[in-house]
Amino acid sequence: MSSRKKVLLKVIILGDSGVGKTSLMNQFVNKKFSNQYKATIGADFLTKEVIVDDRIVTMQIWDTAGQERFQSLGVAFYRGADCCVLVFDVTAPNTFKSLESWRDEFLIQASPRDPDHFPFVILGNKVDLDNRAVSAKRAQQWCQSKNDIPYFETSAKEAVNVELAFQTIARNALAQETEAELYNEFPDQIKLNANDNNRNRDGDNCAC
């Protein structure tokens, strides 16, 4: 076992219904793709271990339902997320237009401490299809305008960029999860053995 502390990252995937969220997750976790379309109702949870800079990181991926009527699973669902992945379908321009409102929805619900620097990643999915309708340039421009959100073009079907995209997601989330020494005031346990103690009878310089 590694001596480094374990990390678990909560990753939320959002985007319109049918853009390929569940497929991307399945490709990443199970290396499988299915053409059958089954709508996610409510939520799915998957976990996967990845290695980032020698650290073992467990990604806890929360896949949501995109349908209108299930749009809000509520604050609780978004609470304490480490990263948010926004997905659109490059062949469906309306799914690209929705990104803005998905991002807003997330920021409102999750209300992260530092919304400007919260790690998002945008995935333009289904690049294997011919009938592309949103250009890479257009997507990139939008991402740049939002504090330079990383952008990947993916295909869950042909496993294009999926691994890379999720690696980036893990890395960025981890970077945000800085080991801030917030809790320094936590008093450490001090141990002294009897001999030291005898030598140092009057010392108030105990190592606290």
């Binding site: 569940t22 997750m25 399945n26 976790v29 199970n30 499988k32 089954k38 709508a39 996610t40 109702i41 409510g42 939520a43 799915d44 949870f45 998957l46 896949d63 339902a65 299930f70």
Partner: peptide, 11 residues
């Protein structure tokens, strides 16, 4: 009931 996972046998 919507919490039931109805999608993706793999997951």
């Amino acid at each position: 009931s919507n919490l039931q996972e109805q999608n993706g046998d793999d997951t």
